[in-house]
Design a protein around this nucleic acid. Structure first.
Lengths: 121, 121
DNA sequence: TCGAAGCATAGACGTTCGTCGATGTTCTGT
DNA sequence: ACAGAACATCGACGAACGTCTATGCTTCGA
């Protein structure tokens, strides 16, 4: 069987970390699993990025462009774009470009997948 | 009604962040809520700390001393103690000293509380 | 065609983080 | 009382992170 390396994202995280379906409390997580999971958590472990996720979800239509998010956060546009890229690369957000605007949306079930990873006995 | 400032820990995290019981997708999280939640996630967003939590949970009796954890991680004893302190301060672990040994245990429901915070609609 | 708007990227800078060696502290056994 | 074991704390150092300014790339409207 040929194994293919796939980038781990927040949406596909549940029950796939380190090729072990056991929760943390059954047997020790693998080294690779711990690394992947830490990347997912690290992308979320920032106040501004948490607010970004929350604001996008709460925004009308479940989507928001960069210009909607810059002012309420009190950050510059490049910084907001940076945070959005981190969240998108981790699999929490998707980007859709319409005209000159870039609209960001939550990936359905992404947060739930990560939450499932934290589940213990 | 008198409000008392309490340190937010992983065990008490569920439904208490920023005084809002709404999930992230209802209305934007508060500034303080985002800061507190990021601290909880940051404590967990490290490969070695994830492995520590997992190894302690999988250890016999659900507890482990520092000497049990140093060698399998390939870290020095001060580094392991440092990580255990971070996890303990965040509310994920408890410390019990018996003799010269310090035994660490998972706080029941701590991971679940944080997982509940990530729940969205 | 050209200027402006919206966004991404690049480079720089100060801060935080993970790790280490050295040392302090507490407890046990002799 | 003392030597050793187990652990915590301290100080230092390189790497990673968050933020900024400056700049480049598209797209739209005049």
């Amino acid at each position: 069987m040929t194994m293919i390396e796939l980038p781990l994202t927040a949406a596909s995280a549940a029950c796939c970390i380190g090729d072990t379906c056991a929760p943390l409390t059954r047997e020790p997580i693998t080294v690779d699993g711990a690394r992947d999971m830490s990347l997912l958590l690290k992308a979320l472990a920032d106040p501004m990025r948490l607010r970004l996720v929350s604001m996008i979800a709460a925004h009308e239509g479940g989507e928001a462009c960069v210009c909607d998010l810059t002012e309420p956060l009190g950050l510059t546009q490049p910084t907001v774009s940076h945070h959005l890229k981190v969240l998108t690369d981790a699999g929490y957000l998707t980007r859709t470009k319409r005209g000159t605007w870039a609209y960001y949306t939550l990936v359905p079930g992404a947060l739930d997948s990560v939450a499932a990873l934290l589940r213990t006995v």
